[in-house]
Amino acid sequence: MTTAPPPSPPPPNPLSFPPATFQKLAPKIFLERHLQSTPATRPSGRNPDTFRTPSLHTNSLSHAHGSAVVRTGDTAVVCGVRGEVLSLAAGTGGRIVVLRTGEDGRGKNGEGEGDEVRERGLVVTNLEMGTGCSRDYHPGPPTDFAQAVTARLHRLLLSNKLISSQSLRILDPNTEEVKAYWVLYIDAVVISLDGNVLDAAWASILAALRSTRLPQAYWDQDTEVVVCYPEVSRYKSLDVKGLAFTASFAVIDLGAGKGGKVILSDPDEFEEGVCGERVMVCALEGEKVGWIEKGGGVGQVAEVVECVHRATERFKIWEQLFAEVLGSSG
């Protein structure tokens, strides 16, 4: 009786990597394979036109005149607004006097508008990358990235003219002459970063401004100082005019016959590192556009139009969230 030979061993498996390793070795191909699937799906599981769900909390900082925390996915930013007095009178040194509870006086807002916010530097914006927000950022001086985002945020704030200069004036109640101003120091700190920090930081700034309440103040002609009332009940809300929200996009070119260009809404950190073309749209009320930025790649009108359409839809989501948290009046 003959014995059958032992079965031959199975052929070795072809070389393969887990998805996480493949993502690190060939990030662009990894993203392209996901977008070429049916239906197109990003590595995060979102569709190309899907934004991350935002969340908003206000008045989280007890020592700020206004504050907000915004989270979109794993990107989170906390913003605080602090008001300080800038005196225009010579020799005062910008002194502030806080009345004792029970003392009285008169305060009155001036009339008329001007571009005082820009001319007098009444808004100071700063963005800081918090320690541990991402593996790529460490303690030290501000990075070029943080300074670039700070400049974009400041430009957006001034170009949209959201802050009324009238609400920042401190007047002499007798002559209605402007004697001092409130200067707003806006500090945003990124506590967690997973891409698209601009949209989250901008929303946190806008929410913090809309929650800001400044002490009632007036110019005392006898002592030549700015007088502020200590009672919280006398605090006045900052006059923020309208709403404006940014929507950022990353564009990747899959090539002819493979899907062409694909626009990714609200890109995460991985997608930002792969895609070289960026678009940012600042949407205003009434489906208007206040600002468009385009960088990298060869832009096409159809791409920008699609980004504008998505930005107006994103505006509605932010508008509803602000109404729920801050109230329809802001």
Rank of each mutant, 00 (worst) to 15 (best):
I317S: 10
C307M: 02
P141Q: 14
V301S: 11
L122Y: 03
L238P: 06
F51I: 06
C282S: 12
S67A: 09
G130M: 11
V308I: 15
S328Y: 00
S237F: 05
F322R: 07
P54Q: 04
A68C: 04
H154K: 05
A283D: 07
V85T: 08
E313I: 05
V308W: 03
G105M: 10
L168T: 09
G102E: 13
V77A: 04
M1H: 15
A200M: 04
A247M: 04
L127T: 01
R278A: 06
F249V: 00
L198Q: 04
F249Q: 01
L171E: 15
G132V: 08
T150Y: 03
R42I: 08
S265I: 00
E293W: 15
K108Q: 13
R155L: 04
G83Q: 10
D253M: 02
C133K: 06
L193T: 11
E128V: 02
R71M: 00
A283F: 03
E113Q: 11
S204R: 01
G255C: 01
S265A: 15
A20P: 03
L86E: 13
L238W: 00
L214E: 06
S165D: 14
R213A: 12
W182Q: 05
P39W: 05
C228Q: 09
V197D: 10
S192M: 06
A323K: 04
L193E: 12
T50Q: 08
T75Q: 08
K161W: 11
I96H: 09
V301L: 13
P230K: 13
G257C: 11
R52K: 09
D115W: 13
G195V: 03
T143K: 14
F30A: 03
